[in-house]
Write a protein that binds this DNA or RNA. Structure first.
Ligand SMILES: [Mn+2]
Ligand SMILES: [Mn+2]
Ligand SMILES: [Mn+2]
Ligand SMILES: [Mn+2]
Lengths: 219, 219
DNA sequence: TAATATTTTTAGACTTATCTAAATTTATTT
DNA sequence: AAATAAATTTAGATAAGTCTAAAAATATTA
């Protein structure tokens, strides 16, 4: 068995691996709000357990065994978020911290029954794909609202930033999953956008806001 | 905030307090499968936090603050057990260990929404009363099946022993919550009983089995 | 009541995870 | 290629929780 802490390190390394093959000590320290020296210690332990490949000064990456654990923790995190939002009526900006704890309860039986109870959801409340029990994940489409040009339209399918403040802001302006957004104009100076939401009105959003919204082009 | 470990000690002391005002170091050690020396250490810490009253060699008991925490952990434990059985279709002998973990997730909001989602259950799957959010608990009726005499009838309302093997056995013979039991005979030698369950057939059960079943007399 | 047994506490050690400060290695500038 | 800067690792401490073995206190029994 692995401790909560070990699971959190594996999850952090997994997340950071999307951007770079080799993950640096400092990147992990930042992600987990801890110190580089603590990261070095933990990485050595994970390397002893063959959950990461590690060469001093060269960074880490996950072994297959490590990746399997990371994905299973992510699977549980996202399933619990669906439970909290769909069944307990939490809002999408309230569930992350609770899921951060629930994700460490290790019981295949529990996870599978929860998944069934939730009717096999494919995405969590933030639009992130839920890995299946074999560890397969839908690759996330990387197109954001900021990538669209004038007059183009997109459907919101996910958020990149999961912070309470961002999610709250999105709620307030109506930028929720499934909303249809059309670009009315882009300010060249700061890339802020003027948009319509579900063909309604005109809203100005910053580049900071638009580049954190995943969209898909409508069919 | 208190650690999982502290919460487990408080819960253990609460449970043992039902039988004796002052709880002994060894009793706690037994309950938690640990050593007396570890218990002494932890009790000192809990005393520093004013969660228990402690006099060396004299035993411990909970302060109001300590009791409040213990009851809130028990409340969460029992609510999660209801969730696991009612919603996820676990059997009553499968839920204890999972609830042991879930009970430590501290969020009033979560607990209250869960309780609402479950439609404010009064009892857990083993017939134990669920404390309300103010910490009030129904006093458990202390009458067991072993207390009945020939021809008397009782409805099963709870189990004292929560072990997998006992619960499993009860399932197999049909001694589940709500079952109506009538005493057909008692063997004086070992107090084993011959009973009918829901007016059906004749089953022999040991004193060990009958004294762990809580019953109420029918109206 | 004195001897013995039991219970409880203390002493000292170990593990996990963390930190600060110092040393080392790698990267970037001049 | 030195010198300087940045990143990373090591050294040494600390805190939580646990354990074994020994000491101290309490309870039992003769
Ligand atoms: Mn989340
Ligand atoms: Mn999410
Ligand atoms: Mn239980
Ligand atoms: Mn129970």
């Amino acid at each position: 068995m692995n401790s909560f802490t070990e699971e959190n390190y594996l999850k952090a390394i997994f997340k950071l691996s999307k951007h770079k093959e080799e993950v640096s000590t400092n990147a992990v320290a930042d992600e987990l709000n801890t110190k580089a020296s603590s990261v070095t210690d933990m990485i050595k332990k994970l390397a002893d357990k063959k959950l990461v490949n590690y060469a001093p000064y060269k960074g880490v990456n996950l072994t297959d065994a490590g990746r399997k654990i990371a994905v299973s923790v992510i699977r549980k995190h996202r399933l619990w978020e669906v439970f909290l939002v769909d069944k307990l009526k939490f809002k999408w900006d309230e569930v992350h911290d609770l899921a951060e704890e629930l994700e460490h309860i290790n019981s295949e039986e529990l996870t599978e029954r929860l998944e069934e109870f939730l009717e096999f959801p494919k995405y969590d409340p933030h639009g992130d794909p839920i890995p299946d029990k074999n560890g397969n994940i839908d690759r996330h489409k990387e197109q954001t609202l900021a990538d669209l040009s004038i007059n183009e339209t997109g459907i919101i399918v996910g958020v990149k930033d999961h912070s309470k403040s961002y999610l709250n802001y999105l709620d307030n302006v109506g930028l929720v999953l499934g909303a249809e957004v059309q670009i009315l104009g882009v300010v060249e100076f700061d890339n802020s956008m003027s948009i319509s939401i579900n063909k309604q009105g005109k809203t100005i959003i910053s580049n900071q806001a638009s580049k954190n919204l995943y969209i898909k082009k409508p069919n």
